[in-house]
Amino acid sequence: MYERALTELASKILGEVEGIIGYAPGSLPFHMRPFLCQREEDIACLSFNHFARPNLARYLLTLEMRKKRVAIVVKGCDARTVIVLLKEGQVKRENLYLIGAPCHGMVSVSKLEERFGVLSPPDFVWEADTFTWRGERFAIRDFLEDSCERCAYPNPPWYDALLGEELPKPPVLPGGRDYLGRIKALPLEKRWEFFAQEMEKCIRCYACRNSCPLCYCTECFVDQTRPSWLSQAATRNENLFFHLGRSLHMAGRCTECGACERACPLGIPIGLLPLYVEELIREHFAFEAGMNLDTPAPLLTYRENDPNEFIR
């Protein structure tokens, strides 16, 4: 998808920028790997498809990239992440060239495996919204990653160049936007049981934190020892504490790209907590992270009529 537009654009801008952070086919089928294209002959490697899952904004934060002027391929959610980084002064606008890629949603390998068993790449023919498997046609939207099922912004809100055409807003999929609804509908004790069960699984590998392009503190609160906020031991309550703390640090910043959930080796729906915080912020503070550069972050501003009923 977009290969032609991508190569044309890449060869045009490669002198202007020192590198292009994009995707290239990985060594595994159904996975794309992050790829830094710095030479003319590498341009042909750049591609984009339904498996370009990684949020490349993460790579803008490496020391080398901060010094260089780079172009980066961004989906809707990734572009929002870049905007948050710009707003927080982590990257410089003049050092960035955003290549927007309207996104049809990323396909989940586990959902494909669930339906087709052992996957073999030649069985599949991919198109924008559909694919065929041994001649049978399927809709992409039935096999999307969870984070893509709830996606509301397939187009980057902001870019320097766009590959292809902007897409219409995606339809609300069953279980999509109402991802949180099934948890919210549970009574308090059931919610606790649900989270307690999930937190038992967590091994505190910090893959969620490390994959998150917005978790860039040089020293995370979990690593601090003076004061020591929580123990390193992966016990249920400590795990919950870690995830609650992380969600609060993400408040008004999370762009719902789902990188944390995809990174979790135990499949914990770890996005639930930050997503809930984002929902509260949308509802009560009328703010969505990464939509523009001007609106102040919700926790750095206030209104006199903010919710007050919970305070005696």
Binding site: L188, E189, R191, L240, L280, P298, L299, F310
Partner: peptide, 24 residues
């Protein structure tokens, strides 16, 4: 001047988040 206004937003989110996570 405005410390408690900022605090109110933080506390609101914290309280709602704890309730969401099943804490009374």
């Amino acid at each position: 001047l405005s410390g408690n206004y900022f605090a109110r937003r933080k506390f609101f989110l914290l309280k709602e988040l704890l309730i969401f996570a099943g804490i009374e």
